[in-house]
Simulated scan of single mutants.
Amino acid sequence: MLGQPISMVLPEVVGYKLSGTPHKFITSTDIVLTVTKHLRQVGVVGKFVEFFGPGVAQLSIADRATIANMCPEYGATAAFFPVDHVSIQYLQQTGRDAEKQAYITKYLKAVAMFRDYNNVSQDPDFTQVVGLDLTTVVPCCSGPKRPQDRIAVSDMKTDFEACLAAKQGFKGFQMAPERHGAAVPFQFNGEEYSLSHGSVVIAAITSCTNTSNPSVMLGAGLLAKKAIECGLSVKPYIKTSLSPGSGVVTSYLKESGVMHYLSQLGFEVVGYGCMTCIGNSGPLPEAVVEAVTQGDLVAAGILSGNRNFEGRVHPNTRANYLASPPLVIAYAIAGTVRIDFETEPIAVNSEGKEIFLRDIWPTRDEIQAVERTFVIPSMFKEVYEKIEVV
């Protein structure tokens, strides 16, 4: 700009090879938290990360966007998925005309930027290659204070209890052993309840790439539907909310018939954009705040946004976990993060029947069938044509 030369160091490009097929109960959030933790361990600060390999072909565009959106959490300068036929299908799905699709495809192929992920001869040379077998990914969350601290859902209960005892830090609250079983009774709307360490007081499906990913949003809706059909509910004192990043999300949730079930569990659309993840959840019920304060409790927030830093979500939730939208609902129903979903029921319904998470969790095939039917080009056109450019 000033007519003077500027020297730049070319960044290293780390190739991240994905292989295998995810298990039918795995969400894109599970994959991204696994990738984030791995890349943190590899060390990619100041580097570019390019994803390649046959496993990429198993991921939708929304899945890839969710992974790329976590780039700041694993520290890379940029995260890149080369364009392939799935990318072009997305252009079609979101209403781009056939002429534009053809033009883009022709150009990218001409400059050798169009990729067939199953063709190893197209793989570039990288500074370093690391990888992940998607078959090894398990359901997971991250927290209680940082988005890169991944925990398998099967370990959540033991990990939280270990955090209670650990010294103050990213994975510790330094709570005296005799205080681990503390419980504080309180009244809310004329009913008696009790809070303890790990009790969920905020559950939010909040604006982030997660809420622009139809697979996890419809997964949350299908889980809500099955939960309602099994007679489950969320305790009324838990602050629940749904704040998508786009009006399209509301459209396909309504069209697929799951919005009604989300609302019944308290996950009403409260607006669009960043809310709970930036501290805009609003106040908790006064009775809840008094119970948390009186018992010096480590209460929990569970949210789908990736900004679950300590003190950011709410001053009364010292433990905050990043989870996929379906898991946000699951922990809201359970009412606590101190639960092993494998061995303990998520809740007992009014008939006294124990319901386990596996009883209501939708499969990837179920979710994709609904997505193919209800996430259609006309929906994107209808929503985005209403946008006025000033």
Results as ranks from 00 to 15, higher is better:
residue 92 Q to H: 12
residue 101 Q to P: 00
residue 94 T to G: 03
residue 138 V to I: 11
residue 106 K to D: 04
residue 159 D to N: 13
residue 150 R to I: 09
residue 146 R to I: 12
residue 88 I to C: 01
residue 87 S to T: 07
residue 98 A to H: 13
residue 87 S to D: 01
residue 146 R to M: 14
residue 116 D to M: 01
residue 142 S to W: 03
residue 165 A to N: 04
residue 101 Q to C: 07
residue 139 P to C: 10
residue 162 A to T: 14
residue 99 E to N: 11
residue 154 S to A: 15
residue 153 V to F: 05
residue 87 S to I: 01
residue 155 D to Q: 12
residue 175 M to K: 15
residue 176 A to S: 10
residue 122 Q to W: 04
residue 155 D to S: 11
residue 91 L to R: 08
residue 150 R to F: 10
residue 129 V to Y: 09
residue 166 A to G: 01
residue 88 I to K: 00
residue 152 A to F: 07
residue 119 N to M: 08
residue 116 D to T: 03
residue 121 S to E: 12
residue 113 M to P: 00
residue 149 D to C: 07
residue 134 L to V: 10
residue 159 D to R: 15
residue 125 D to R: 13
residue 150 R to M: 14
residue 160 F to Y: 12
residue 153 V to A: 07
residue 128 Q to A: 12
residue 100 K to W: 12
residue 107 Y to V: 03
residue 145 K to H: 04
residue 174 Q to G: 08
residue 118 N to C: 09
residue 111 V to H: 01
residue 87 S to Y: 05
residue 107 Y to W: 08
residue 136 T to C: 12
residue 149 D to P: 00
residue 122 Q to R: 05
residue 142 S to Q: 03
residue 122 Q to I: 00
residue 172 G to H: 00
residue 118 N to S: 12
residue 151 I to C: 10
residue 160 F to M: 11
residue 134 L to Y: 09
residue 122 Q to Y: 04
residue 104 I to V: 13
residue 176 A to T: 06
residue 118 N to F: 10
residue 119 N to L: 12
residue 162 A to P: 01
residue 96 R to D: 00
residue 100 K to L: 11
residue 104 I to R: 02
residue 146 R to P: 01
residue 161 E to A: 10
residue 119 N to V: 04
residue 145 K to P: 06
residue 93 Q to A: 09
residue 142 S to R: 02
residue 116 D to N: 13
residue 97 D to N: 13
residue 114 F to W: 02
residue 133 D to N: 09
residue 130 V to M: 06
residue 128 Q to E: 15
residue 131 G to A: 11
residue 117 Y to P: 03
residue 133 D to S: 06
residue 170 F to I: 14
residue 107 Y to M: 04
residue 110 A to G: 05
residue 100 K to A: 08
residue 116 D to S: 07
residue 131 G to Q: 06
residue 123 D to V: 15
residue 95 G to I: 03
residue 174 Q to P: 00
residue 130 V to A: 03
residue 152 A to K: 02
residue 108 L to Y: 11
residue 102 A to F: 06
